[in-house]
Computed example of a mutant assay.
Amino acid sequence: MERRSFLRGAVIGTSAAAFGGTLMHGAAYAAPAQPGAGPYGALGPADANGILLPAGFTSRVVARSGQTVPGTSYTWHSAPDGGACFADGTGWIYVSNSEINPSGGASAVRFGSTGAVTGAYRILSGTRQNCAGGKTPWNTWLSCEEVSLGYVYETDPYGVNAAVRRAAMGRFKHEAAAADPVRKVVYLTEDETSGCFYRFIPTTWGDLSSGTLQVMVAGTASSGSFSWQNVPDPDGSPTVTRSQVSGAKKFNGGEGCHYANDTVWFTTKGDNRLWQLNLTTNTYELAYDDSLVPSGAAPLTGVDNVTGSSSGDLFIAEDGGNMEICVITPDDVVAPFLRITGQSSSEITGPAFSPDGRRLYFSSQRGTSGSSSGGITYEVTGPFRA
């Protein structure tokens, strides 16, 4: 039984690659994704970069922490984390956070139409432990501070406008953000063992300077219905946001977040789960749970950042595990897509597709050294299905 019905053919390059949620009726929830044969086949031997890929795919190193980005004079930041791609004329831009504290921030790499690097530059400075974030429909990057009473910063991927702190989006241990242009809200995860899932409703869509922060309210079960309630004090004072609303549903370490066609997915690292919210029916369920996979057979552990492709596939990066990006298909099959070798003290971060859907960018946050100064940012090119 297929739990999610996916619509194909979205405009590639937006955060809302086309796939949506099946209408839910009562308790008719299907089982979470299970291991199976992936759409790209088995992984081949490690390439020159130590990456195992399916046939037809190749990798290259785009940047290394502490070194100048090839073809530029810009030194790439340490601990590269969450990222996104933005169209730029006939080329594109990849934005990447820096998860160090202090002096986190974010940088960008600009690519020409052939994929050649044409520039690199800083888009956010002077912030703390910028972990994940999210892309807006108006082509800005929301960079989130993963610290207590952290902020969201709205940044310009094109390097023209100064970054702006968006205090109205709440002060808590932010992780990821995902914009929903239908409901005109931004969803937010919280990286706490008893964290919550939020949405921010801007007073004016496209302007994040003011609005209302709400928290998801639901029971303790792993599926059911949910609602939203206002957070009285988004600034987290005197009580932290996750403790202000009775009945707010708790999640064990919120991580990546992705929206597409009336559905939002987010991961929780404490229990290796991928949650799915069906926004047309206000119901939620588990899209993946490694504890529900036969013992020793779970291909996806250490769930972290998540993105989607125009085919309806979800790509989920591992923080730990065996350093894989796994794919979950529309028919609920989970399988490895790639694996990085020789970097067991790192994590994979920032998966994002180029606007044409042919290139996948991501980073190994600590690379082979296991240190934040050893980060490596990669590109994988190949026959991604449309």
Rank of each mutant, 00 (worst) to 15 (best):
E2R: 02
R4Y: 15
V11Q: 11
I12W: 09
A16W: 08
P32I: 04
P35A: 10
Y40R: 12
L43R: 14
I51G: 00
A55C: 03
F57W: 14
P70C: 15
S78D: 15
G82W: 15
F86T: 13
F86K: 02
A87L: 13
I93G: 02
V95Q: 00
V95Y: 02
S96G: 00
S98E: 02
S98L: 01
G104Y: 06
G105I: 08
A108K: 01
V109W: 01
S113H: 04
S113R: 05
G115V: 07
A116D: 06
V117R: 00
L124D: 03
G133L: 03
G134A: 13
K135S: 09
P137H: 06
N139T: 14
L142Y: 15
C144P: 10
Y153L: 04
R166Y: 09
F172P: 04
A179R: 03
P181R: 06
K184I: 10
V186L: 15
V186W: 13
E190R: 00
S194Q: 06
S194V: 05
G195Q: 04
Y198P: 02
A218T: 08
S222A: 01
S223Y: 05
S225K: 04
S225A: 11
W228G: 12
V231D: 10
V245G: 08
G254K: 00
E255N: 05
H258P: 04
Y259Q: 08
Y259V: 10
T263K: 08
W265F: 07
F266P: 01
T268V: 09
G270F: 04
D271W: 07
R273D: 09
L274Q: 08
Q276G: 03
L277I: 12
L277C: 12
L279T: 14
T283V: 14
Y284L: 07
Y288G: 05
D289P: 11
L292V: 07
V293L: 12
P294G: 10
G296D: 11
P299H: 11
L300Y: 14
T301M: 08
S310E: 15
D319F: 08
N322R: 14
M323Q: 14
D332N: 07
V334H: 05
F337V: 14
T341F: 05
I348P: 04
I348G: 03
S354N: 01
G357P: 11
F362L: 07
F362M: 06
S363A: 07
Q365A: 01
S369H: 05
S372I: 13
I376V: 15
Y378K: 07
P383Y: 13
